[in-house]
Nucleic acid binder design. Sequence first.
RNA 1: GCGCCUGUAGCUCAGGUGGAUAGAGCAACGGAUUUCUAAUCCGUCGGUCGGGGGUUCGAGUCCCUCCAGGCGCGCCA
Length: 548
Amino acid sequence: MISSYLSKAVRSAATEAGYSLDGPVSLETPRDPAHGDLSTNVAMQLAKGAGKPPRQVAENIVAHLKQGLDPSRIGPPTIAGPGFINFMFQPALVHEGLQEILGAGPAFGRSEWGSGQKVLLEFVSANPTGPLNVVSARAAAVGDGLTRLLRACGFQADSEFYVNDAGNQVRMLGESVKARLLELDGKPFEIPENGYHGEDVRDIARAIREAGLEEKLREEDAREGGAFGQWAVSFNLARQKADLEQYGVRFERFFHESEIHSRGLVKESLDDLRSRGYIEEKDGALWFRSTDFGDDKERVVVRSSGEPTYFLADTAYHREKHARGYGHAIDFWGPDHHGAVPRIKASMAALGYPADWLEVVIVQQVNLRRGGQLVDMSKRAGNLVTLRELVDEVGVDVARFFFLMRSVTSHLDFDLDLAREQSDKNPVFYVQYAHARACSVERFAAENGVDGAQADFSLLKEPEEMTLIKELMKLPLAVEMAVRLREPMRVTNYLTSVGQMFHPFYHKHRVVTSEPALSAARLRLVNAVRQVLGNGLALLGISAPEKM
RNA sequence: GCGCCUGUAGCUCAGGUGGAUAGAGCAACGGAUUUCUAAUCCGUCGGUCGGGGGUUCGAGUCCCUCCAGGCGCGCCA
């Protein structure tokens, strides 16, 4: 890697010049290409301690640096501005980069720095009481994207969906279904106060009726209760799975909350916390002393009725994750649950796990925009937009790309009119079109007998070719940054910038020309563009069409 | 009242660990195609980075404070 080579060279040059440099040598790509390909600010950092002007420090470092650099790869370092030392890549280095991309092929952008560490990602985890909404759609796109990216970086990443199939809500769903069954018969019916009023509950009632299951369920329900609720949960979950499948998101596991209870893990967790001294009784209930770990109030874990709370079950679930040997867990939660983060982190700390073992990423809300107006998605308004409706309207690629264009922590405005538009206004197609265009050039080259096998890269020296290759070389960095920051958006933005360099190159320079050698070299560059765009899109779960 | 997120061009948003003259898309306007995909390209217009303090060689970025919007503060899940 060129940056580690340079940082070593700078470090030893600084030492030889008599400066003591603690901390890493920062190398970054200057905003302005005229300032070189990589730049370091060490001279400014050292200036104060050395009691000399930054530019003079830079002079001293550069004087020693010249011996350590291979002039055929890195041009002579220059000093600029307040004391930056700038490095320019020589064509030979850039050509080596191109060779590296082509040699790695589908593996380009992948790395091993995760070294097989086990990570568990939990996302969506929507209640099985209805269809998936657009917030789930966003979480699914981000969570799945990050799972793919972690794997590309050598982590053993698994994805999981937690099914809240226990508790009060399932019973309320069952009661709501029963009410809708009465409605089907034209009888008087009443949906419970905390019940589910959505149209989808009518679907469930009709499905029971059509499958001829009503009698059977009534008997079971009379015997042990909850039959309608359980059936409805299965029905909803099957739909959610189908929607996610269509959306290109597949989970390693759907973990049912009921399993936490049936395996006795809730009691185990309670006992564990109690033996560690964090449980106390008050007002007939059991409380977890989460304030010991920075939460602002203590939390009930067992109600005075004897029933465990959702929080205790969730603690038990995360304890189970830890028991499965995951060295790190990442949860994606909706914005309405951010208040619960301190207590779950507190319970993890109480169980003795490292402070950063559980990481909770809050996926911010989604606003839909149609006709310039925000769509009211409140439940009362009744026009909840589902993941399925969204995908049916704009397609999988557009939906995923739009969710991955924005920072996870930002509220997102999803413009349905723009998303539905099959035109140049839609940013998704910009990247896909670049890929299709590259494929098209490859086809044309093949038809005209251009063969890149023996290409001489030294023929690539146009500015557009150089900047394009330099950008292509940055895919691994974009992937790494996306993983470090938990922001798949980094890759989306990167791919857009590749397009912004490939399209101008295409316009200015013909690939297939009357010069066979040049044609071969440029064809290999196009191969690399296609590879980088294809690899990047695959990491985001977005298709890379060969024709558009 | 407390906590979390957000505030950058008319709109939607980017801006690795603080770096050099703050960027992109859309919108508006003007151009480009006898040849590999015009879903493209080139150009123009557009900014008190919410306000005010502070930290330092340097702040959109860090700290404090105020303002505005969103969300959350249950023996619900």
